[in-house]
Design a binder for these strands. Structure first.
Length: 943
RNA sequence: GCCCGGUUAGCUCAGCGGUAGAGCGCCUGCCUUACAAGCAGGAUGUCGCUGGUUCGAAACCGGCACCGGGCACCA
């Protein structure tokens, strides 16, 4: 019993993806199909996936990203490349810690109650659960990644990489520690980077205050300056008022002092260009410790920094009587006090933007704090240089500018976070120097481990002797998640490897990676961080940017939006669980739907979805396509007589019929186009092209055309049997190659059907086959054009039959009239096909002369080009419908004649347009005129 | 304020110099032995507005309008 016969018996009428998908997922994984050997043959092709955060479960955006990456890597595998697709997850320091703290809070606890160690245990437990869910979801999508190489940004290997990277950057002076104004998130109790701050428009107020001059009154009688602020509580930390140096109103006052209300401090009036004389009163209160612009003014004028707020967002001792109040209460209290003491001039409603913390969802507080920073400009400069060689190459190209602009005028990156979950900073404070405590002035050493830190510290602080043992304490802070994510393309490949050893095999083989596929929303967070890190750390690979840049291409895709065009996100609560759609329609259907929607260059995709029923018409359409392929294969299995593409062999070119040559030409063309599209990130076009070829050409026409040949009936002649074999061979070839081409998009279904069709054992995989060779010789433009005419002719007949109200089962005679010998020959050759596809009683092909000579019977008539189609079925004809049809034809031809004639009548057209365009235009005009004339005559015949 | 997308059939989108397209939805007729998750046929558009370039513009250039996004930000 052959495999196909078994499959035939097993094939149900409709495709049921559930069992099929899990079966192949297990077979691929257990066989190690996607576990490549770095020593294996084939050009390397590698992708590291964007590691999803272990913050819960995957959403549709991940499914989209997965569908794109998997399509690409599966295609490259079919191209014979040595493909590595490496999976993993991200520890998402701040996001996960926020979730855990929220959980603790619900239980009435704080993390401090647990202690660091117990808290981290909880975090690892969370990671195990969420990571497991995510990995399960990725498997359900059929992701052809190497699970044996799965990584986590906080695993041992990544930790080694992070420590090494931190040390090297520190040694190169690219990491420093210092006190600066940072974005402080009171909700998470940590500093955050500029990228984690989001400006939001809020309705607030602009309070106008009067600050009195210390000197009483100036020469012009002025006794005070008026300032306006949106943040009254910060006035407690004011150390100056600034005016524009060119502002004549205040020129005389610069250098004088003001008495700061409520506080009484004397503060100077300074002149600074930052101040816009046109805005408000032209006077700005300056709070260097609580505002980035004021900080800069303070630097320029050497102003003191007075911090009036604590890290939890409450006012500190410097705030005097306001100490202990939360910042928002303090705001009210300060305003009330100012009003009471007569300093409040007025309050205006004012809409302005306020920086919010992405995670904490509260306004961030610019706060003076000692933190670790990465000096970004030298790293960015190296990346900008690389960009001159198009490293990396962005697809679509327009993202290059976004990336370059961000790398220009970049600010230093604050990398320390006051968090526990994450990579602990590999710096040790020599607390024995500062009385056992970490203060801003405690010296520190950066090292790879505590032993190395001790050696370094002893060398520095105890003269190398053990007489005065140093006491070390590791920095309690953790690193920004993106620090470890920034190392992802090489930390996952084994970097840094053994000390002084050769490069790890994976790194040597697969670095740089071939392409990074990700959404535009993390170009700054992630893409640029990776290129900057690589620029500093991959120096051993040489100076040429192509050697160290972590990916040759960056394929940027859009976001998945919901049915209301909103970005799908967990917080908005409008996410769609991919598993729901997978369960309903299958992973292949979901993947195909997502890729098919992507066609445009990186546009967002809108996935239609009915939340009441959990259905999606888009995904359903793809499911239907899967079912179509299923049935096409089922048809083949029922008609190949137990043979396979291999046993049938290549069809004999001499035996090919018209339809065979046509479909083989189309197959070759689709092969060429599809390979090109897959290779150029034209994934949506590849999907659409295959969909149309499979459904509209193979199923609708080719299969219908060969049914007759596949079933030669009782006692077939040897010629009929030979022709049956030819049709079988072509069908098997077309279907077999189509399945290979579809495999990157619909891996499970194609794998299943390919096994059914080829009878290959379970241990052999379509996923590891070769892309079908392109049959150049089969390409035939002229044939494809002719065949399109034949299809059109058949359509006209069908249309006329529909007009006549003929039942599909009723047969009717058909006549074609054409003056073109080639077309006549084609129609003759296709006579049996036409008969079959139009239920023709007889098919006659006549020249115009012959038609003229014959007595003009009442007939349905239609035209296609200059071809006339006649259905002489007097009596059955609905004359009005027929007239309507002819009038429509005439109107259409007339419109065309008008347009074409008008164009030809324009002397400029004949002079300036290319000759072939003019000729084509004339030909089209002649045809349209002939068509109109024919239709008019037929209309006249009807009386 | 600066930058980037988008505006084409009821919906979702392709087309990006030579006579307007697909899928879904809609209408009509069909259970034709692969598939009703199907087959055949059909209807549907001042291609946002406005100038210009061109023999010819949905497409190229300018302006405008509206929608979406990013960056910066004046207290």
């Amino acid at each position: 019993m052959t495999a196909p016969a078994a499959a035939e018996a097993a094939l149900a009428k409709t495709y049921d993806p559930a069992g099929t998908e899990s079966r192949w997922q297990q077979a691929w994984e257990s066989s190690g199909a996607f576990h490549p050997d770095p020593a294996a043959e084939g050009d390397p092709f590698s992708v590291v996936i964007p590691p999803p955060n272990v913050t819960g479960s995957l959403h549709m955006g991940h499914a989209f990203n997965t569908a794109l990456i998997d399509t690409i890597v599966r295609f490259q595998r079919l191209q014979g490349k040595n493909v590595l697709c490496l999976p993993g997850t991200d520890h998402a320091s701040i996001a996960v810690q926020t979730i855990l703290e929220k959980q603790l809070k619900a239980e009435g606890q704080r993390k401090e109650d647990l202690g660091r160690e117990a808290f981290l245990e909880k975090a690892w437990a969370w990671k195990a659960e969420s990571g497991g869910t995510i990995v399960g979801q990725l498997r359900r999508l059929g992701y052809s990644v190497d699970w044996q190489r799965e990584r986590f940004t906080l695993d041992a290997g990544c930790s080694t990489a992070v420590i090494e990277a931190f040390n090297r950057l520190h040694e190169q002076g690219l990491i420093y520690r210092g006190e600066y104004l940072v974005n402080w998130c009171p909700a998470s109790g940590s500093a955050v980077s500029d990228l984690e701050v989001e400006m939001k428009e809020v309705d607030g107020h602009l309070w106008h205050f009067r600050y009195p001059l210390t000197a009483g009154a100036a020469a012009d009688g002025c006794t005070h300056l008026e300032v306006a602020t949106t943040r009254p509580e910060t006035l407690l930390g004011d150390t100056a008022v600034a005016v524009n140096p060119k502002d004549p109103r205040y020129a005389a006052l610069v250098g004088q002092t003001l008495a700061l209300p409520l506080v009484g401090r004397q503060i100077p009036i300074v002149a600074d260009d930052h101040v816009d004389a046109e805005f408000g009163t032209g006077c700005v209160k300056v709070t260097p410790a609580h505002d980035p612009n004021d900080f800069a003014i303070g630097q320029r004028h050497n102003l003191p920094l007075i911090t009036v707020m604590a890290r939890d967002g409450s006012m500190n001792e410097a705030a005097g009587r306001f100490q202990g109040l939360d910042r928002f209460e303090a705001r009210k209290a300060v305003v009330a006090a100012m009003d009471a003491e007569g300093f409040l001039v007025k309050v205006e409603d004012y809409r302005h933007s306020v920086p919010f913390s992405d995670r904490g969802k509260v306004p961030v507080e610019p706060l003076l704090s000692t933190q670790w920073f990465v000096r970004t400009e030298p790293l960015a400069a190296r990346c900008r240089e690389a960009l001159e060689n198009a490293d990396p190459r962005f697809v679509p190209e327009r993202w290059t500018k976004v990336y370059r602009d961000w790398l220009t005028d970049i600010r230093d990156w604050c990398i320390s976070r006051q968090l526990w979950w994450g990579h602990r900073i590999p710096a040790w404070f020599v607390v024995s120097e500062t009385g056992g405590e970490i203060t801003d002035s405690t010296p520190y050493v950066v090292a790879r481990d505590e032993a190395e830190a001790r050696t370094k510290a002893e060398a520095q602080f105890s003269g190398g002797s053990h007489a005065h043992p140093v006491v070390l304490e590791q920095d309690p802070d953790a690193l920004d998640t993106w620090f470890s994510s920034g190392l992802w393309p090489f930390s996952t490949l084994g970097w840094p490897g053994e000390l002084n050893g050769a490069e790890p095999a994976d790194l040597a083989r697969w670095y740089p990676t071939s392409v990074l596929v990700t959404g535009f929303d993390i170009i700054f967070f992630w893409v640029a961080r990776m290129t900057m890190m690589a620029g500093a750390l991959m120096e051993s690979r040489g100076d040429a940017s192509a050697a160290w840049i972590p990916f040759r291409d960056v394929y940027i895709h859009g976001l998945v939006r919901d049915e209301n065009n909103r970005k799908m996100s967990k917080s908005a609560g409008n996410g769609i669980d991919p598993l729901l759609l997978i369960e309903r329609y299958g992973a292949d259907a979901l993947r195909f739907a997502l890729v098919r929607e992507v066609a445009g260059a990186g546009q967002d995709i809108r996935l239609d979805y009915d939340r009441k029923s959990d259905t999606s018409a888009t995904v359903e359409a793809s499911r239907n396509f899967a079912n179509k392929l299923w049935n096409a294969t089922r048809f083949a299995l029922m008609n190949l007589g137990g043979e396979t593409p291999a046993s049938l062999g290549e069809p004999d070119p001499a035996a090919l019929q018209l339809a065979d040559r046509w479909i083989l030409s189309r197959l070759a063309r689709v092969n060429r186009e599809t390979a090109e599209r897959y290779g150029n990130y034209g994934l949506g076009e590849a999907a659409k092209g295959l969909y149309e070829f499979a459904w509209n050409e193979v199923c609708d026409w080719y299969v219908e055309l060969i049914k007759r040949r596949l079933n030669p009936g009782e006692n077939p002649s040897p010629a009929a049997l030979a022709d049956q074999r030819t049709a079988r061979a072509v069908l098997a070839k077309v279907l077999g190659e189509l399945l290979v081409m579809l495999h990157p998009l619909m891996p499970h279904l194609s794998e299943e059907l390919w096994h059914g069709l080829t009878g290959q054992p379970e241990s052999s995989f379509l996923a590891l086959q070769s892309w079908p060779a392109l049959d150049q010789a089969a390409l035939d433009n002229q044939l494809e054009a002719q065949f399109a005419e034949l299809i059109e002719a058949i359509r006209v007949v069908r249309n006329l039959r529909a007009l006549a109200g003929l039942k599909p089962s009723q047969s009717a005679p058909v006549s074609f009239v054409t003056g073109r010998a080639e077309l006549a020959a084609l129609l003759q050759e296709a006579n049996p096909d036409i008969t079959a596809l139009t239920r023709a009683e007889t098919v006659a092909v006549l020249s115009p002369e012959q038609a003229e000579a014959a007595p003009a019977a009442k007939a349905l008539a239609g035209v296609s080009g200059e071809l006339q189609v006649l259905l002489p079925i007097e009596g059955l004809v609905d004359l009005d419908a027929l007239r309507g049809r002819l009038e429509k034809d005439i109107a259409k031809a007339d419109r065309e004649i008008n347009g074409l004639a008008g164009r030809l009548a324009n002397p400029n057209f004949a002079d300036k347009a290319p000759p072939e365009v003019v000729l084509e235009c004339k030909a089209n005009l002649a045809e349209a005129e002939a068509q109109a004339a024919l239709a008019r005559r037929r209309l006249g015949d009807l009386g």
